[in-house]
Amino acid sequence: MLAAGAGMAKDSGGSAEAQVALGRRLFHDGDLSINGTLSCATCHDPRHSFADGTRAHPGAHGEPGLRNVPSLVNVGAFSPLTWGNDALTTLELQALVPIAGEDPVEMGMKGQEAELARRLSANGCYRKLFKAAFPKARGRIDFATVSTALAAFQRTIVSHETAWDRATSGGAPLPEAAVRGEAVFRGGAGCASCHSGREFTDLGFHRLAGEPASAPNGDFGLARVSGRSEDRGRFRTPSLRNVALTGPYLHDGSAETMADAIVRHGIALSPGDAADVEAFLDALTDTAVTTDTRYARPGKTCEIS
């Protein structure tokens, strides 16, 4: 359990631009994992809309993954942040879970803060970026400054350039099938009761009708942290932005397709309505975010001379 406030590095004198540049470089750096094999981007791959296309990614030593990798598109607008922990309310807190968490082990850096500082400080570009980003801390390299920079970068991953966004702001209308699908989505199917708002999530924890309290992989959902039996099987509603790019679906990646995922919600749709809902979900796709150079792995040239 992380202490309240852990991972927060307040440094008002730091350059926001430097924090973002540093965070981007760290996001793509395998040295944030114990054996250098995993960066944040290994699982949150920009080409997959910051998810990874597998059910659950193994940890650095091949430890079995527990949950499906969520997309990071518009993640700066979300709190809480993960499938099953309502205490992870900030990106700064959340970053330490994959880096140093043990349930499950992902990047495997628990107890390795000094080793991380050793690796990063060996790189002159990092030394300059940490000093520019955290001048009051004199460029200190630790879990707190690393997670703060990662959070600053993740808040820049913004996508509101979908066909649906354009249609709702007076642009080209959606195809007829997508229009019908949105009506089903917001109407009889009841999808919008949880997948609500501009980001298509209420950020609440719910158990799907018909889903067991304990998933086949043994994941109790929110109950893993709350200890309350009524929280078994409850997972946070994921955003549906770029959902067409982020399969497989559900907390354990057990739904291979959007159609499978819709069925698992316990909603009975006619084949025509199901196809229309999928057409609507396709209209929530922004492929530009997957190729935006602002999110790509930075080159060897340092951002600071």
Partner: peptide, 20 residues
């Protein structure tokens, strides 16, 4: 060790300095 490897093309996922 990764820092000693002179790749022909930058790998899709290059790994960190402690990888191989």
């Amino acid at each position: 060790p990764t820092p000693k490897v002179d790749y022909v093309l930058e790998p899709g996922k290059p790994g960190g300095s402690v990888s191989f």
